[in-house]
């Protein structure tokens, strides 16, 4: 795993995809819609934050399960650092969403179910960091937080993907709101959106890999474990 983290091809791919996201996201044609107008381009930057967060949390989940399975402390390190960057992307998603909501929905916080539930999901993941900080013994911390991380992931999924669909939501394709189907189906936008998701996710993985490698060398809890 360290070998892959040291390789640069996927970092160059991230740079290429993100440059493409900036250029294509600002220059390519987008659907002309009321209320949204040019802010529809936020789809290329705000939504990939959440996709990236979910992908990083999924990686974190996998390593937590792996830790419980084989008990390697380096798996715990992978889990915590991917969760940290996932949390960063989630906070950025929340902040950018508030800016966008202020413009299109009239106020930064509308009590929209998806907004509320994503805030709760982030709080659950903040509790993961707090839980870890409260346990000094590294192996006990790794085991307890791995179990917690699995619960955190499986409570995030219904909070983000089930609850908002049960009621009315301002978010597109949730509840009674189908007003954004136009851009949900816009192929021109997919051409930028999916590379953006990949680019931001790879950037997140890059940042977490830097912290993982750093702690493998300097953190006394991990520097004798191998990946």
């Amino acid at each position: 795993m360290v070998k892959l983290m040291q390789q640069s091809w996927w970092k160059l791919l991230a740079i290429f995809l993100l440059c493409y996201t900036v250029v294509g996201g600002l220059l390519f044609a987008v659907p002309r819609l009321n209320i949204l107008n040019e802010t529809i381009r936020n789809l290329y930057y705000h939504v990939p934050m959440w996709f990236g967060m979910i992908i990083l949390f999924t990686v974190s989940l996998v390593y937590s399960i792996l830790y419980l399975y084989r008990g390697k402390l380096s798996d715990d390190l992978m889990a915590v650092e991917t969760a940290n960057v996932g949390l960063l992307l989630g906070v950025l998603g929340l902040l950018t969403g508030m800016i966008w909501a202020n413009y299109t929905w009239g106020s930064p916080w509308n009590g929209d179910p998806k907004q509320n539930m994503s805030a709760i999901a982030l709080l659950i993941y903040f509790a993961y960091s707090i839980l870890r900080a409260s346990i000094p013994d590294p192996t006990k911390r790794a085991r307890i937080s791995a179990v917690y991380n699995i619960f955190a992931f499986f409570s995030m999924i219904p909070l983000l993907f089930v609850v908002p669909r049960l009621t009315d939501s301002l978010h597109p394709s949730n509840g009674g709101n189908n007003g954004f189907v136009v851009y949900d189906l816009d192929n021109q936008m997919r051409l930028v959106f999916y590379p953006a998701v990949m680019g931001f996710t790879l950037l997140g993985l890059w940042i977490s890999s830097l912290r993982i490698r750093l702690r493998l060398i300097f953190d006394p809890n991990y520097n004798h474990s191998s990946l």
Partner: peptide, 26 residues
């Protein structure tokens, strides 16, 4: 577009500096 790309390039340059320093330590 140019301004955003320059800022992005700066951040990436810095990330690679961290990367290289880390490789030395490794």
């Amino acid at each position: 577009v140019a301004v955003i790309l320059v800022i992005f390039a700066g951040i990436i340059f810095y990330l690679f500096r961290i990367e290289n320093q880390l490789k030395k330590y490794e």
